[in-house]
Design a protein around this nucleic acid. Structure first.
Lengths: 352, 352
DNA sequence: TCAGGAAATGTAAGCGCTTTCAACGACGAG
DNA sequence: CTCGTCGTTGAAAGCGCTTACATTTCCTGA
């Protein structure tokens, strides 16, 4: 056994025990609030903790209990509200479960090393869809969020096909005849699913959907599409964009060039970012339950760590259509009114 | 010493050593890439690791080296680009330093418990200004970012007074005579400093600044101010808002009510959020070096953990004025053009 | 052929905590 | 007065890793 209660600088459970005049077992008991401890011993321990400014070593505890009490989250980046919401949902739920969160941002760097480091520090990991390929040897429980997961790995995603169908049908019902889908269907499973819905809506009316316009999903990519439209390189009276960022960029560029949205061309997107309700016309979009996505992921990790079997079927969360002016709908005058912006439920769309 | 190389389920360094036919010391050496190891031993270890699907225990390592190799970050929330940028800057730099990041979001919950849990799992902590009060007994190195720090604690912040002065002077130079500062100066040190700059600009012209209009910094709070303006309860021809969110909400409400921005009233804000360059007129604002703020924080934590003494003087990072149309400046037609939005440097403002 | 040293590897002592198990004292019942 | 109980407490065995130090192996030159 140990003699010194204070090796070098650090204050350990030994120092506390010594100062409180009890054994380390008792200190541990009062700190963990486990087992029975006399009021007197408890008080002395607490005092010693206070006086010594004791901070327990999480590592030592983790080692002893063989659990990190921490979940990992791997995201590609953090721009826009999407990832933030996901992160908040995840962190909040994890916190409620008494778990910490270690974050790993993809960025451009090679994830292999950071990923395995992360794996050694947490009990389970939630990985964003596009990064699923980086998943190493599968030792820790893992869930993939918003994207396809390798076989055997659990996935949680937002509904895409149906809402894309609904959104597209809405545009068609407005009398639009030449719709274009803007987004790289090969870049992310989500985008592909949205294009599927786009296609299905056309088929339901006996129409044939145009090929997707493959572009990345950033502002500059939207500008490019707008330029092609203005140049006559592309023709359309309705644009279904894979996200709001692209949709907004297109809308801004077209409007600046003198075109009218939605009269000349309708534009809709995905995500319901804050800007969507500030621009004129307001951007019609699909709101995703991103917060719940994150929370659900944390929940599932917790269950998996607890020994629950991975689910074979994908967890799919419902989305919500948000109709504003950019699709051709009439719009209320005063929009942003407080925290809860005007949200129209997805009711039968008005004919043009 | 230990007999079994595989206690129960988990694969440990013992299982690997056994399988590779070497000692655990050798396994550790190849995994840490420290000391000398024969090519043959290295190969065997690597194979064993692969075959056994070995994931090291971060806790055990941390305990042995007496370091977590992880820094903590405590933020109040994650809405808007401000906190995200900060987080990204922090995480990126920490990653470069080979450190992981544990995140703690303030939210509404009581931080005392989560905070000390965090403290037990990391080597040092970065706390956002408004949350500085939650800092417990100061055992770990700490830096406070964007806000006041208790004495003895290092602080890193963006410049506020000078830029507020400049922004206000800019409005005054436009010929505005009745400026109002919108924001709760008691809520955050940053806001107070901005009001100081607001005041100083007035004094420099021999004017007297109005009392600040105390409101929170969310959309709904902006709406309230706009309503008061419309009702005649408040009178102004220029509004200096503590952040873009409030500024945008005010602008939208006023415009919807038929007022003209900037002709009837100029509106400026802080943060340069994405929406700021999408609305018409574009919002004049102050861009903060949030990313660097986070990166600097990570750097300082690293140095502190390395034994460097805390700095007595505050680290102050420079900000940048972004002139658009909402202050009365003439604006270029085509704004959002790609990733780099039109940014005007802070040159002598045109007279009205 | 052998001493001496460098290179490679193994041994074992912790790191700071949790938790089982045994020991202890006080106390009421028999 | 003795024994069984219950409430408290302490001793000690790990948890899985790093690393100083000891030991073995392998060359090299004399």
């Amino acid at each position: 056994m140990r003699v010194s209660g204070n090796t070098g600088r650090g204050v350990t459970i030994y120092s506390v025990a010594e100062r409180a005049g009890v054994s380390i077992a008792t200190v541990s008991r009062v700190l963990q609030d486990s087992g029975v401890v006399s009021a007197r011993a408890r008080r002395q321990v607490l005092e010693a903790v206070e006086e010594l400014d004791y901070v327990p070593s999480g590592a030592a505890r983790s080692l002893a209990v063989r659990q990190h009490d921490t979940y990992g989250l791997v995201l590609p980046e953090l721009s826009g509200p999407y990832y933030s919401e996901l992160l908040v949902g995840f962190e909040t739920r994890a916190g409620e479960l008494g778990r910490g969160v270690m974050l790993l941002l993809g960025g451009a760097r090679d994830l292999a090393k950071p990923f395995s480091t992360l794996a050694s520090r947490v009990d389970a990991i939630c990985v964003f869809g596009g990064l699923a390929a980086h998943i190493g040897r599968g030792t820790r429980p893992i869930v993939v969020v918003a994207g396809g997961a390798p076989p055997g790995v659990e996935a949680i995603t937002a509904e895409n096909v149906d809402s894309a169908d609904e959104l597209t049908e809405h545009l068609l019902a407005h009398g639009r005849t030449r719709l274009l889908f803007v987004g790289d269907t090969t870049a992310a499973p989500d985008v592909l699913e949205r294009y599927e819905g786009f296609t299905r809506a056309h088929e339901n009316r006996g129409l044939r959907a145009a090929e997707p316009v493959h572009v990345e999903f950033r502002e500059r990519d939207g500008i490019v599409v707008a330029e092609r439209l203005l140049a006559g390189d592309l023709a359309a009276d309705g644009l279904v964009c894979c996200n709001d960022e692209v949709a907004l960029a297109i809308m801004a560029r077209l409007t600046d060039a003198g075109m009218d949205v939605p009269d000349d061309v309708a534009v809709v997107g995905w995500d319901d970012v804050m800007t969507a309700r500030y621009v004129r016309p307001g951007l019609t979009t699909v709101r995703q339950p991103v917060h719940q996505l994150g929370a659900r992921a944390a929940d599932r990790l917790h269950e998996l760590v607890g020994g629950a079997p991975p689910r074979a079927t994908r967890n799919v969360l419902p989305t919500e259509l948000v109709l504003r002016g950019s699709c051709g709908c009439e719009e209320h005058a005063a929009r942003p009114q407080g925290a809860t912006s005007q949200t129209y439920l997805s009711t039968p769309p008005p004919r043009k």
